[in-house]
Design a protein around this nucleic acid. Structure first.
Length: 212
DNA sequence: CTCCCGATAT
DNA sequence: ATATCAGGAG
């Protein structure tokens, strides 16, 4: 089966499995999602939601994040891990939003990745889910693992994998593909103990039983 | 490439 | 004990 067919089969199955694939992060604006995605690095959604439930009541705007002491912000996001890094990134991000973007989250990917703490994965995820703008495919650890196992992209660099996927998937489906593949990677094609017997692609997957 | 960080699954 | 979890910066 060639790569194009794999993508086609994949999209069909994912539509059936996850007809309305969405994120499991809680947010009520592009700005909140931006903060949530920054916090989600190397951290589960459940924990991020736990943190943001309190955080979003206290911090409503970019200004709110730069007015408190850095230590206070660190303390407020501590359970998400990497809290010193993340606090600094959030501060820098909010400062840039205020200075260059009138406190609004940009709606194109070039502007997004200019923000401290925002790479293509975060940018694509925020744009696709909160701003309904599909300018990239969020290649996170799940998407990377799934497409590697399925033999869809030979690359190991996420940027190259993304470029590859953007050629293979119609732009209107970029966000769906990303969201659904992440769910699939979390629920079926897991990193540690993949549930290959339940996988709709087991007949042609070149990496049966967790070889990657 | 390393570092940042802590909780949880295995 | 150790690998991993919705990464990105230096």
């Amino acid at each position: 089966m060639d790569t194009k067919d794999k993508i086609k089969v994949m999209l069909d199955s994912l539509q059936a499995f996850y007809p309305a694939a969405s994120l499991e992060l809680n947010y009520s604006s592009a700005f909140e999602l931006l903060i949530a995605v920054i916090l989600s690095a190397q951290c589960t959604d459940a924990r991020v939601n736990q943190v943001t439930q309190i955080l979003f009541k206290k911090y409503k705007s970019p200004q709110d994040y730069i007015e408190v002491d850095l230590e206070e912000l660190e303390n407020d996001i501590r359970p998400s891990g990497f809290y010193r890094n993340k606090a600094k990134l959030i501060r820098g991000c909010c400062e840039t939003l205020i200075r260059d973007y009138e406190s609004e989250v940009p709606v194109n990917i070039q502007d997004m990745i200019s923000l401290p703490g925002v790479g293509r994965k975060t940018a694509a995820m925020v744009l696709g889910n909160a701003s309904a703008v599909q300018q990239g495919i969020a290649v996170d650890t799940h998407v990377k693992r799934v497409v590697q196992r399925l033999g869809i992209s030979p690359h190991v660099e996420v940027d190259k994998i993304e470029q590859n996927l953007m050629r293979l998937v119609h732009p209107e489906k970029w966000t769906f593909f990303s969201n659904a593949t992440i769910l699939f990677g979390r629920n079926i094609c897991q990193s540690r103990k993949p549930r290959c017997s339940e996988c709709p692609f087991k007949d042609w997957c070149p990496s049966p039983d967790k070889t990657i």
